[in-house]
Design a protein around this nucleic acid. Structure first.
Lengths: 167, 167
DNA sequence: TATTGTTATACTCTATAACTATA
DNA sequence: TATAGTTATAGAGTATAACAATA
C-alpha cells in the first residue's frame, strides 16, 4: 500500500488494468482506525512468525500459550484462558497439542481437584528458547520493515499497552 | 490485567485460589511484543464492534470489505483481496453474503470479461452510514478505555501506519 | 448451587489446490 | 500460457451451550 491519497477513477471497468503495479486504492478511512490497523499488524506478525518456523512447528497461538505457561508455572487452565484472552474451551485443543508433543504437563490440583495445573516439561523448556527467538525475529522484522527508530518502537509498545492493560 | 510486575508463587497448586480476583499473572515478556499486543487490541476492537451491532448484522470482516468497496467503486475482487489483506477465495463467501443482502452488486467487466467489478447498491450505501458509526464507536471506546489523549491516539495511528504502509 | 475442565456444535477465518472462462 | 474468479477441502480460531466431577 504505497503513496498518499490520490483521486481515483470511478469507472474502473474502463481503465486498462496494469497487471502488477495496480492503481493505488483508496484506504483513507480504514487507514485511520486503530481497530483495523491493529488487525493488519497482527496479520503481518503472524506471517513473519510462520515464515521462520524452525523445528518447533507451533502456531502463533500455541506458542503464546506455551510462553504464558513458562512465565506462570502451574497456572490453571482458566487463568491461561484469561491471560491470553481466549475461552477455556478453546484452550483444550491447544493444550492437547502441547501435551501430545510432550511440551507441557497437566496435573490435577491436590487442593482443589477441579483445577488442573499446567507446567512445562524439560522438552517444553527447550522449545521455549526457540520460540522466543521466533518472537524476537517478528519484532525485529516488523521494526525494520517499518523503519521505526527504537524510541518510536518503545512509544508504540507503551501506547498499545495502554489499551491492553486498561483499568 | 491489573498492576505492574509482582513476584508470583511458583507452587500454585498450594495457593488457595481467590475465586474472582485472581493473583496477577506474569505477562512481562508477551507484554512487550507488538506482534502480541496488536492481536489483543484487535480482539478487543472486535468485541466492541460486535457488542454494538445495530440493524446491520455484519461481521467486522464483512464491514471492512463493504467500507473498502464504498471507497473504491467498481473495484475488482482481486484488488479487494489485496486491499483488505485476505485471499480471493475468502472474499467469495464475504461477497456472497453482501450480495445476498442486496448491499453490493457484481458486474462482469465489459473490457475484460474475467474481471468482476463490485460496487455498492443504494441499500449498501444506507448500511454504510451505520457501519461507519460502529467503527467510530470502536475507536472512541478504545481510546476512552485506554485513557489516551487525542495526541497520543494520533501518534498511535501514525506508528501503526508505518508498519501497514511499509515500502 | 457454583466452578473447572471437557465435549459438542456451528460458524468464521485461513491456506491450498484445482477448476472454468476468459485473455 | 497466464489471469480472475470460483469451488472444494482441511485446519485454526471463535462462540455457545451442555455435561461430569468436584467444591
Amino acid at each position: 500500500m504505497p503513496s498518499p491519497e490520490k483521486p481515483r477513477s470511478l469507472e474502473r471497468g474502463v481503465v486498462t488494468a496494469t497487471p502488477d503495479v495496480a492503481e493505488p486504492l483508496n484506504l483513507s478511512y480504514l487507514r485511520h482506525l486503530v481497530g483495523n490497523l491493529s488487525g493488519l499488524v497482527h496479520i503481518r506478525s503472524r506471517e513473519i512468525f510462520k515464515s521462520r518456523l524452525s523445528e518447533h512447528q507451533l502456531t502463533p497461538k500455541q506458542a503464546v500459550v506455551l510462553e504464558f505457561i513458562a512465565n506462570n508455572p502451574g497456572v490453571s487452565q482458566k487463568e491461561i484462558a484469561q491471560g491470553v484472552v481466549t475461552t477455556p474451551a478453546m484452550l483444550v485443543s491447544v493444550l492437547d497439542t502441547l501435551t501430545g508433543r510432550g511440551l507441557v504437563e497437566r496435573v490435577t490440583d491436590t487442593e482443589d481437584r477441579r483445577r488442573t495445573c499446567v507446567a512445562l516439561t524439560p522438552d517444553g523448556l527447550l522449545a521455549l528458547g526457540d520460540i522466543k527467538k521466533s518472537f524476537e525475529n517478528v519484532e525485529e522484522t516488523l521494526q525494520a520493515e517499518s523503519g521505526m527508530t527504537d524510541q518510536e518502537w518503545q512509544t508504540l509498545v507503551t501506547l498499545l499497552r495502554k489499551i491492553t492493560e486498561r483499568e
